[in-house]
Amino acid sequence: MPLNGLGEPPGDQILPALFPVPDPATPAPARRRVPRPEAADGPEPPGSGPARPGTAEDGRQLVFFGAETAEPVLADLAGLLAGPAEVVRMGGTARISVVVDAAWRVHVLVAELAQRGIAASWEPTGDDRHAVRTSYARTLKPLAAAWLRGTTKRPPAGFHLNGRRLRLWLAAAGVAEPPGFLFRLGPADQECWEPVGAALAAVGLGGDLLDPTAGGPAYLVTGRRRLRRLAELVGDRPPAVPPPAWPERP
């Protein structure tokens, strides 16, 4: 089901129903973002050391490398590729797609993609899931070139995670699994698992790799300090997300 660049379906097409529907009158928390260009994957350090906070308009501390400290950029979609998302090339363009297990994920991903100027579409898969796809776009070609070796997906050298990338991964495939959070991986993406795990550890979110027999493939992040770090990095819960599905700040 196609959507326009603003993340809204054309005509009478609507996004999958949410229960409960989020209250549109609820104001979003104020954020201060500092624009900063970013390549598809550059030498930016992962920020595993002490945070360098700023201050939001509501007085909250902003964590360095957190989702609230910079404008959304296309390179953030690397967070989807760290998880189960797929990327394919066609001519001079590329497309990213991911199958999600809940309607709220469609809402969040469409909105996040629209913030980055990417048109998206979605459709039910017939097994109570939804396939979310970007349009084919030339702007996505650098991500595809960085992540694909033939048809095999593999993180490029220097791959790192930050708050914006983690936010997208969490929206697409993060699952609350008390006492922690699962970050699901692509079942056929074994070449990604180790470097993605190293990138998680580098931002203070080292987790246990679960194989398919244990409910994976996924990384399980546990521990009070790590979950607090996760909440700081991914930022505030989007209105469409049910509260238990998003890490809350203390």
Rank of each mutant, 00 (worst) to 15 (best):
residue 189 D to Q: 13
residue 137 A to S: 15
residue 155 P to M: 07
residue 249 R to Q: 05
residue 103 A to Q: 04
residue 131 A to R: 13
residue 21 V to E: 14
residue 125 T to D: 14
residue 193 W to E: 04
residue 219 Y to L: 00
residue 156 P to K: 11
residue 230 L to R: 11
residue 244 P to T: 13
residue 109 L to M: 05
residue 161 L to M: 01
residue 33 R to I: 03
residue 162 N to G: 01
residue 80 L to P: 04
residue 222 T to K: 14
residue 196 V to S: 09
residue 149 R to W: 10
residue 240 A to G: 07
residue 110 V to G: 04
residue 201 A to R: 10
residue 185 L to E: 07
residue 218 A to H: 07
residue 139 T to Y: 00
residue 166 L to E: 00
residue 133 R to L: 15
residue 247 P to Q: 05
residue 114 A to T: 02
residue 63 V to P: 01
residue 78 A to R: 09
residue 217 P to N: 07
residue 228 R to W: 06
residue 35 P to Q: 02
residue 229 R to G: 01
residue 169 W to P: 00
residue 198 A to Y: 00
residue 87 V to Q: 10
residue 210 L to A: 04
residue 215 G to N: 12
residue 242 P to R: 09
residue 157 A to R: 08
residue 87 V to H: 10
residue 90 M to Y: 10
residue 176 A to S: 14
residue 208 D to G: 02
residue 24 P to S: 11
residue 69 T to C: 07
residue 145 A to Q: 14
residue 10 P to G: 12
residue 11 G to S: 09
residue 214 A to C: 12
residue 124 P to N: 07
residue 52 R to F: 11
residue 118 I to P: 02
residue 181 F to L: 02
residue 145 A to F: 04
residue 213 T to F: 07
residue 85 A to Q: 04
residue 68 E to Y: 00
residue 180 G to Y: 12
residue 12 D to R: 15
residue 110 V to N: 02
residue 96 I to F: 08
residue 109 L to Q: 05
residue 113 L to T: 05
residue 202 A to I: 01
residue 26 T to A: 15
residue 183 F to A: 13
residue 5 G to F: 12
residue 54 G to T: 13
residue 108 V to A: 11
residue 217 P to I: 04
residue 104 W to C: 05
residue 81 L to H: 06
residue 147 W to N: 13
residue 204 G to Q: 07
residue 143 L to N: 07
residue 47 G to D: 06
residue 152 T to D: 14
residue 183 F to I: 09
residue 61 Q to P: 01
residue 93 T to P: 01
residue 208 D to C: 01
residue 147 W to M: 13
residue 198 A to G: 03
residue 47 G to L: 10
residue 136 Y to M: 14
residue 190 Q to C: 08
residue 240 A to C: 11
residue 59 G to S: 04
residue 201 A to F: 02
residue 26 T to R: 15
residue 102 A to N: 07
residue 215 G to Q: 11
residue 53 P to D: 06
residue 168 L to H: 06
residue 232 E to K: 09
residue 55 T to S: 08
residue 45 P to W: 09
residue 138 R to F: 07
residue 202 A to P: 04
residue 77 L to Q: 06
residue 125 T to H: 05
residue 146 A to V: 14
residue 42 G to H: 03
residue 146 A to Y: 10
residue 29 P to H: 12
